[in-house]
Design a binder for these strands. Sequence first.
DNA 1: ATAATAGCAGAACAATTGTTCGCTGTCAAG
DNA 2: CTTGACAGCGAACAATTGTTCTGCTATTAT
Lengths: 222, 222
Amino acid sequence: MMARKSKGLGERHKKILAFLKKYQDDEGYPPTIREIGEATGISSTSVVNYYLDQLEKMGKIERQRKISRGVKLANANPLGEMFRVPVAGRIVAGEPIPVPASDFSYYDADTSIDIASSLFSTSQKNDDLFALEVSGDSMIDAMVSDGDIVVMKPTNSANNGDMVAVWLPEKDETTLKYFYKEKDGYRLQPANPTMKPIMIGKDEPLEIKGKVVMVVRQMEKL
Amino acid sequence: MMARKSKGLGERHKKILAFLKKYQDDEGYPPTIREIGEATGISSTSVVNYYLDQLEKMGKIERQRKISRGVKLANANPLGEMFRVPVAGRIVAGEPIPVPASDFSYYDADTSIDIASSLFSTSQKNDDLFALEVSGDSMIDAMVSDGDIVVMKPTNSANNGDMVAVWLPEKDETTLKYFYKEKDGYRLQPANPTMKPIMIGKDEPLEIKGKVVMVVRQMEKL
DNA sequence: ATAATAGCAGAACAATTGTTCGCTGTCAAG
DNA sequence: CTTGACAGCGAACAATTGTTCTGCTATTAT
């Protein structure tokens, strides 16, 4: 009478999958076996377990046995990855560069931007990246204008050719320049080829705050 | 000895928040109280509970009491959408602007870039966006340098203040400028405030190819 | 100095939740 | 008809996990 089984996903498999997704979206964490049973009309936890086993074998879900709510959809990554970068503050010519609060990294949507990881050639560790919003037109020689967002990797040193954010204590000045080490000091080269470099003596103070890895300019106006 | 934190998030609050996010990202479900304690160096579950209560009062997290792993970040954005933009080609000063093959739109990872939709303030329809890679330094007056990627929305007209990509047939020139309509024609204003605008007479030909909505500069070298 | 309180640990306790096992009914093949 | 795989139920069990209570210490206010 009842079509026993065609193949692939049965009615209950689908229901469980659907519930898994919905519950995760709604609640922010996966359901328990009992909750799954309740939602799909299965009265026994063992039957739910039975189906979960099957779904796992089919590769539809991943399970962490023995731990509560250890179920997740295997197929949770359709498009490419993206990651969130905290916006530490504004970068202004006459003020020191803000850096994110040390080792801890918590931030919400208000103070962060999303970047598709595909924009980074090497999928290197980019956990510690942070971003700054440019304030004012003082960085135009770095081809960066007011409102641009610069994504930086924190570092204290730089290789030749890197664009770095530096703080010059003697001039009370923050600037973005290409960095070159030379025999008698450092050369800070503006990105704009029509502008002249700044030479820094070997003993002059120079604080490299980070290496610029990306600049994003949004033209949209809301 | 230990400076008692008076205001805001203490060190442990931050650590817990950070761990919550990391664990959820890694595992797909929230951690237990004991796991939080282990990760943050708190040896007692009651202390973890103590901090979770505080974080909940501060509105940083939401808790479902009595249920396992019932913790989630309050403003948990599901790390929103992203979409794929085809790179139609290169934009060169002396050549016409390539445009994507109209409705015929297929493209793969090699010829496209991913943009997080959160970067667009208005979640307007951006199905028809396309991107161009800038070739050469001829666009420096638009604060765009060699290798930059400009994301454009195709259009034939523009509003005042939009940055547009235009083709000037009389000069055989492609350029990116801010667009202003004036009584006797059009004014094409460079982004760099130190440079002078180009005036276009009303009868001179002017082909607006698209409106620039974003510029992305990757400093990474592979 | 004394009291009050925040910060913390440890352990006992209670609730939740995953696992296992026995049992029943159906259906198709031998 | 019998058998066995499959789908299912319910309950007991064990592990995980949240809650609560007692006590200790250091800092701060009275």
